[in-house]
Design a protein around this nucleic acid. Structure first.
Lengths: 213, 213
DNA sequence: GGGGAAGCGGATCGACGCAATCCACTTCGG
DNA sequence: CCGAAGTGGATTGCGTCGATCCGCTTCCCC
């Protein structure tokens, strides 16, 4: 949390804080594609100042996403409480999508595959919880056969991408299609097996391409 | 079909054909964002030649998309045959998504809102058929309450965007999630009403933004 | 309160990609 | 064979983005 940084002059410290705040806002609004120039402008600071404090983008991203990443794993930690796994899964996914939609930078980091490895520990812990829930939901007969953790990642990409484009028109629209997708993943009468199963490597490749767009 | 163009010299006509073919391929692969430079290169022709034959992008797009647009409305025309509206709807959407996924330029034109008005007649005719099917499916109790034509557009955006990023990894993956979404839009026990209903104006605004990305 | 270190801003550079133009040259076809 | 039609692609102009550099300001300790 309190990383060991060399002590800064009072004004420099203040500017650093401003930069991190600006980056947090911009990353949240528009994803990790935002450039240093824009961050500097929003922080009311020259570009040089940003470059002096943060050598690379990963460094700035790390500073901006520390808290949101913690919030993400915390949400996952409280997902085991539901009596029925499916209910826990739904709640967890609603919360995760809300977090990712409110912070597109967090989305890029969490779903972006190896591109932003700083999120790896967080996503691994979440994947763990998720797999446990999925297995339980499957045992309890609620999860459609053939559906798995890979589908959750694709679902998150789909819903957050929609939210990205609908944000200024219908900020909460993503919930509508999250609902549709969840209902489609639930087991039910006359549900054919899903075609074209996915493996983890596929998901990784697709995520990488998606994040790069 | 056979538009009235001034007669061209034999070699010029051949080059025009090459350009249209190249544009068709490139638009299909990567959407309408492809530039004149690249079209010229793939056609084995100088940029100047492209600019001489096609004053603007819309003109080139029109030449490249005439056939695919016809195919699209033809598919819709044969969708009323199914005894049960829902079956016709599923089949129609499978066919439409296949067409749009195989031709991302067609997707951009068909879903892109006012940006590429050349597609308007086609999309209107399809929307007509679609609304009729949706109304019938609703009467027959298959369509989830609160779902409508606006959701179809969003569904197409979602599925084609996924296909765009998964194309090189799993070319047929879009069918998996089309299936999930369709199953989620079907009526069933315990299906809550969908939140955040959409209007046509919302869909238009979202489509415009999506197409611009 | 003075001086030197630390910090600052933003003009500026280079790379890149895309739209669009222009003209010396080639090719066609009557 | 010759003039009209057609051609290629270098080039210009524009906008974006990452990154650097240096003359000036501000801080803070002695």
């Amino acid at each position: 949390m309190t990383d060991r940084r060399p002590a800064l002059r009072r004004d420099a410290e203040r500017n650093r804080t401003r930069i991190v705040c600006a980056a947090r806002e911009l990353f949240a609004e528009r994803g990790l594609g935002v450039g240093f120039n824009e961050v500097a402008h929003r922080a009311g600071v020259g570009v040089g100042t940003v470059y002096r404090r943060f050598a690379d983008k990963p460094e700035l991203v790390r500073a901006a996403l520390e808290e949101p990443l913690d919030a993400l794993v915390e949400v996952a930690a409280r997902a085991d409480e539901a009596a029925r796994a499916w209910d826990g899964l739904e709640l967890l996914l609603v919360r995760i999508t809300d977090l990712l939609v409110d912070n597109l930078g967090l989305r890029d980091a969490a779903l972006g595959g190896g591109a932003w490895e700083l999120a790896a520990p967080a996503t691994e812990r979440i994947a763990e919880v998720m797999e446990r829930l999925l297995a339980r939901a499957h045992d309890e007969g609620d999860l459609r056969a053939g559906a798995g953790g890979e589908d959750v990642v694709m679902l998150l990409w789909l819903v957050t991408t929609l939210a990205e484009h609908a944000a200024e028109v219908r900020p909460a629209l993503h919930r509508r299609y999250l609902q549709v997708l969840l209902d489609g993943l639930r087991s039910g009468p006359g549900r054919a097996a899903l075609p074209e199963p996915l493996g983890p490597a596929d998901v990784d490749a697709i995520s990488r391409r998606w994040a790069a767009s």
